[in-house]
Design a binder for these strands. Structure first.
Length: 838
DNA sequence: GCAAGGTC
């Protein structure tokens, strides 16, 4: 009896033949790559002749009949919804079809060895259909294997199953949906925009390529709309030039950092903790395709597309294992020691391979991905440098081999020392590292682990330090690298391990994106396309459409839904979108055109390597300053919250002016101080000291709520009345007007019991409405303790009428444009006191 | 001239 075995690719067929018998015979077929191997085998007590051959991926390809070739003639809606689709054997696969027909006719059983994934299951059905055409009675079985090893192949033959039609149908659904959507949307977009804007390339749409572009555009927009924000932080440095980082990292409020700086400023710091612990740097996971592409891009500067091309060549020459694999754990059946032994005579890493064999070997970490079809990428034959066709091929082989040897090594080991310093109530730390054993790092030149020296201090020691207040600013997001894009696509399920690099290639071929070095940026066409979708409210560039598709495929694969249902539902949804696009085509042209116009210098700027995103005005189309400011405020609030959280003594402390949560600091004396994050009010020892100082000078009343200098009673010659003005005028114009009814005013040796400010004795004119014509008042802005409602109204009116009229005559008129102090506007707007300004 | 997924 003859049994026909069909694998997805030639290498698997050869491996199966090798595993089953060393004495197999090899025959040529109609396809030069796909050999036929013959061998005798005992299959479940039956003596059979095994015929083992292969296909090369899918046999069939979905396409529209030729009558739909003319794009202008057919409404894209017809293409999407109604046009029939053919699923025929591709012309380049007809020799394989012939092979299968010929072999099947001579065999009584068929064992399908296609990869154990959805696509493999679908190819299995393509194969069995062809075989049944020539031999309708052939008995069909499906082999399930997780690696082409002795154990797995024999186990598969002992546990043959039936092919799963649901899995195959899920692929058919995906194929039809992708083709219908891709063809119809591409035709619509191209016909609408290509001539109009004189574009050379077609404006394709694909459910993987456009979300890929979406990631690239998304990053560019983040960069373009970025607004730099300043922050401040403390830093301490000891005599050994060792810099200790502030535990709070940085804050966005200069005043608070300055305050903390002042409170901490001294020459000494106490070492409060010296912690030592053993640490490891983990060796890499076994290499799957995605990781391989990322590494090639990041470490070798070889694009994912090129890397796959090179890996395929190495695979075909027998140097490495199959490079398209999702698996990042080795199956227990694979003999890793043998793979290492193959490298023992290598001129570069032979010694290292020997060391692994003799003592240093450690079983690789197991990742959590397994496609059940291929092991992680590893070397299968030793290659020395001059055997490689070029440097890039050598680099790729080297990466794969070094990565494999690293996987079979031990983690690197080190010792980490963290020194924590305390200065007043602030903490600073520095972590040092001593490497004890390099282990995998000896062979894995792509990873670094640097030693960091720290001084040898004892806990409790007082050391000399230099404390500085530093300024920094936030930086824009980094441009998208190819490795990052691969990661995003993988995470969002866009494409497969075998196709991710192709989609990245496609968006470049379509001129949607351009790659310079490892950086990938959208072109103006790419930006205009995605922006148009966004403006018109479509989410075609978002990854979740693909995720929905994936979910639906799973439902078909699990038999919960019929293939036709999923196709119908998805196509109906996309028909609604396509109809809307058609209705809005004028708007699309307009929007697309506006973007192209606005971005006319964009590509050129990109080519000029203009990475200074702050200056790239051409691309700043959607900078929403208000949003950004809100974001910044959020950040400040977040930081302030952090500040508060760390030092809170759980006392409820809301600012009496703006109701914000106050920050509470503990002093060394054990007392607490509170500061409103918006600086409405400061109640701490500093202001208290200043108030005490102010008493010594009877003209000084309290600290200016904007600049913290003294407020003084002054006299306006023009208005011939008293007012309170900041002593640092003209630097600070803070002014508190008094009602006309005030006849005399003077400070008194008494503090407001609410805000602790110096109080005033005021005498009102006889004809005023004041009930009490000689009273004590607190005039501190916003303190509501003693200020009367009619006063507020009175002064407010006065300020309103003063504004803009005789400003030169009223130099003390408050205004918001001082510029020396932060948060002044928000501060002022919170004021309930009369001199509020807008 | 359209998609994405296999593969050489």
């Amino acid at each position: 009896m003859k049994v026909l075995n069909v694998a997805e690719k030639p290498s698997v067929a050869r491996s199966i033949a090798n595993v089953l018998s060393r004495d197999h015979r090899t025959e040529e077929t109609k396809s030069p790559f796909n050999k036929l191997f013959k061998l005798d085998y005992k299959l479940r007590d039956l003596d059979v002749e095994m015929w083992i051959t292969s296909v090369s991926g899918h046999l069939k390809n979905l396409k529209y009949p030729t009558k739909y070739q003319n794009w202008e003639k057919w409404d894209p809606i017809i293409i999407l919804k109604e046009a029939e689709i053919e699923n025929n054997i591709s012309t380049d696969k007809q020799n394989l079809e012939q092979n299968l027909k010929n072999f099947a006719a001579m065999c009584s059983r068929l064992i399908l060895w296609l990869d154990c994934d959805r696509e493999g299951e679908n190819i299995a059905f393509e194969v069995l259909e062809v075989c049944r055409e020539s031999n309708p009675s052939i008995q069909v079985y499906r082999a399930h294997f997780s690696a082409v090893t002795q154990v797995d192949v024999r186990r598969a033959l002992d546990t043959l199953k039936q092919p799963d039609e649901n899995l195959s149908n899920s692929v058919l659904a995906r194929q039809e949906i992708d083709l219908r959507i891709g063809a119809s949307f591409t035709r619509f977009q191209t016909l609408l925009l290509q001539k109009q804007f004189n574009l050379s390339s077609i404006i394709s749409y694909g459910p993987c390529q456009i979300p890929t572009l979406g990631f690239v555009v998304g990053r560019q927009k983040e960069i373009d709309s970025f607004i730099k924000e300043q922050f401040w932080f403390l830093q301490s440095e000891d005599d050994n030039k060792c810099i200790y980082n502030w535990e709070r990292e940085h804050l966005f409020d200069e005043f608070i950092v300055a305050l903390l700086f002042e409170r901490c400023y001294q020459d000494n710091a106490k070492v409060i903790n010296v912690q030592q612990k053993d640490v490891q740097k983990w060796k890499p996971y076994p290499l799957c395709t995605i990781e391989f592409e990322k590494l090639a891009s990041k470490k070798l500067k070889i694009s994912a597309h090129k890397a796959m091309e090179l890996a395929e060549k190495l695979y075909n020459k027998g140097y490495i294992s199959y490079p398209r694999t999702e698996t990042n754990k080795f199956p227990p059946t694979i003999n890793l020691q043998n793979i290492i032994r193959d490298q023992q005579n290598h001129p570069i890493w032979g010694d290292y391979a020997n060391k692994l064999i003799n003592s240093a070997f450690e079983y690789p970490k197991a990742g959590n991905k397994d496609d059940k079809a291929h092991p992680p990428i590893h070397p299968v034959k030793m290659m020395i440098e001059n055997e490689a066709q070029n440097k890039q091929e050598w680099d790729i082989y080297q990466l794969i081999t070094r990565h494999f040897l690293a996987c079979c090594s031990k983690n690197a080991k080190g010792s980490e020392t963290t020194i924590t310093l305390q200065i007043n109530d602030e903490f600073f730390s520095k972590t040092g590292l001593v490497i004890k054993e390099k282990n995998f790092l000896e062979i894995y030149i792509y990873d670094e682990w640097s030693q960091i020296q720290v001084p040898n201090y004892q806990c409790g020691e007082i050391i000399k330090i230099k404390l500085t207040l530093q300024k920094g600013s936030t930086s824009p997001p980094k441009p998208m690298t190819e490795a990052e894009l691969i990661g995003l696509m993988d995470k969002n399920g866009i494409g497969t391990d075998a196709t991710i690099h192709e989609h990245i290639n496609t968006i470049q071929e379509r001129e949607y994106a351009i790659k310079k070095g490892q950086i990938i940026k959208p072109t103006k066409i790419g930006l205009a396309l995605v922006e148009s979708y966004e403006i018109l409210g479509f989410t075609l560039h978002q990854p979740f459409l693909r995720a929905v598709m994936e979910q639906r495929m799973n439902e078909v694969a699990q038999g919960k839904m019929e293939k036709s249902q999923i196709v119908q539902t998805t196509i109906n949804e996309m028909t609604i979108i396509l109809k809307q696009l058609q209705e809005k085509q004028n708007l699309i042209i307009k929007t697309f055109g506006q973007y192209l116009e606005a971005l006319k210098n964009y590509d050129q700027d990109n080519n000029d390597d203009n990475d200074d995103n702050q200056n790239n005005n051409q691309s700043k189309l959607h900078t929403n300053q208000e949003d950004q400011i809100n974001q910044n405020q959020q950040k400040t609030i977040k930081n302030n919250k952090m500040l508060k959280d760390k030092k809170s003594d759980d006392l409820p402390s809301l600012c009496q002016f703006c109701n914000s949560q106050c920050l509470t600091f503990k002093q060394l004396t054990g007392n607490s101080i509170k500061i409103c994050p918006k600086l409405c009010q400061i109640q701490d020892d500093i202001s208290q000291n200043a108030l005490n100082q102010s008493k010594k000078n009877k003209d000084n009343c309290f600290l200016c709520n904007i600049c913290q200098n003294f407020m003084k009673i002054r006299y306006s010659k023009i208005k011939q009345t008293n007012f309170l003005g900041c002593s640092s005028y003209p630097k600070c114009n803070q002014t508190i007007f008094l009602p006309d009814s005030v006849k005399t005013i003077k400070t008194i040796d008494r503090q407001c019991n609410k805000c602790k400010s110096t109080m005033f004795s005021i005498q009102f004119s006889e004809n005023s409405n004041q009930v009490n014509q000689n009273s004590f008042f607190c005039l501190y802005p916003g303190c509501q303790q003693t200020i009367r409602a009619d006063w507020k109204q009175n002064c407010k009116d006065q300020n309103q009428s003063n504004r803009g009229q005789n400003s030169e005559k009223l130099p003390f008129q408050p205004h918001a444009q001082n510029g020396n102090f932060k948060n002044k506007d928000s501060f002022s707007n919170q004021q309930k006191f009369p001199q509020k300004k807008n």
